[in-house]
């Protein structure tokens, strides 16, 4: 295929000469901010830990071994699978998945609502959605803790109207973590779905109704499949950072809700840290996420070729 040059053979030649230098900033950004750190992380995950943080340049699989395999408390038993970290992994996926679903169920109607307002007021609604995000994530998460704690406004007002006698123990529960994640990442769900719904041709819904589809069938057979790219983008944008989140689990959850983000966070903090192990957990997490995304993209490509 011919290059998208402006005109003719000489134009293409000029274009080809320019394209590399012009792409340099992009390559620099991607290289320095993405490729290099990932490589560093990969290398660190194979190094030996130093006891007061940092690493010794001694290549070993110790970090991965620590993640997957246990030899008992004193290291003298036969090797078995270590379930602790896999359990944290699983719990993180579960928590992030629930938070994503929560975001989807609230975010989709919100996005739909905004996208179906008159064009003039949509900007205002989107602006309102983003306002809370001007405040630092840490402060927002702590505030949420104050709202839902036993003497917080939520419990006090529920008690005042007589719905409950004793305060609901919300802090340090899975629900609190999901609420935190939901609150942290909701706009990442709303914005891509909004973009998809805004482009949606409402004549398609009329066509479906005209062809005997009920409202539910129209949603299932036409609306959702057509805006699916926006939904998928939103789910990825919420799920991936939720998986590695550590503020919400740390502040709103307790020991029982320990998640991957906190695990990684701990490895790089203070003298008890273990940099290679933290790097290894990060690498495992990234590999998992990448694999799922690639499998999904492949399935999509197959569907589109059909």
């Amino acid at each position: 295929m011919a290059g998208p040059g402006p005109s003719g053979a000489s134009g293409d030649a000029t274009y080809a000469g320019l394209v590399r230098p012009l792409l340099l900033p992009t390559w620099a950004v991607v290289g320095i901010l993405m490729v290099l750190p990932v490589c560093l992380m990969a290398v660190y995950s194979f190094l030996t830990k130093e006891f007061r943080g940092g690493v010794i340049w001694d290549f070993t699989l110790a970090a991965y071994d620590q993640f997957f395999i246990t030899r008992g408390l004193f290291g003298d038993e036969p090797a078995r699978i270590e379930w602790t970290y896999i359990g944290i992994f699983w719990r993180s996926i579960w928590q992030a998945g629930l938070a994503t679903l929560l975001c989807l169920f609230i975010g989709f109607p919100t996005a739909w609502f905004i996208a179906t307002r008159p064009a003039r007021s949509r900007g205002v609604w989107l602006f309102l959605i983003t306002i809370p995000y001007w405040v630092n994530l840490l402060i927002r998460t702590v505030s949420l803790k104050f709202l839902i704690r036993e003497t917080g406004p939520l419990n006090e007002s529920l008690m005042a109207i007589g719905l409950i006698d004793t305060p609901l123990p919300l802090v340090n529960t899975n629900l609190a973590v999901q609420l935190g994640l939901f609150y942290s990442y909701l706009p990442f769900m709303v914005l891509p779905i909004y973009a998809a719904v805004e482009r949606y041709n409402f004549a398609l819904s009329e066509a479906a109704a005209d062809l005997y589809a009920s409202r539910l069938a129209t949603l299932r057979e036409v609306v959702l499949p057509v805006v699916k790219p926006g939904i998928v983008a939103g789910c990825i944008l919420v799920f991936v950072p939720s998986l590695g989140a550590f503020l919400a689990p740390d502040l709103l959850g307790g020991a029982k809700t320990f998640m991957l983000g906190s695990l990684i966070d701990e490895q790089f903090k203070g003298s008890q840290g273990n940099w290679p192990f933290g790097a290894a957990v990060a690498m495992i997490l990234m590999t998992l996420v990448m694999t799922v995304l690639i499998l999904y993209a492949r399935a999509q490509a197959r569907g589109a070729r059909r």
């Binding site: 398609l204 009329e206 066509a207 479906a208 109704a209 005209d210 062809l211 589809a213 009920s214 036409v222």
Partner: peptide
């Protein structure tokens, strides 16, 4: 009556074909 309960069908001006279906 709701449109999906009327035994009439429409050819839309810009066709409104479902883009995700063959």
């Amino acid at each position: 009556l709701e449109p999906n309960r009327r035994p009439v069908n429409t050819v839309f001006q810009h066709y409104a074909l479902f883009p995700h279906m063959t």
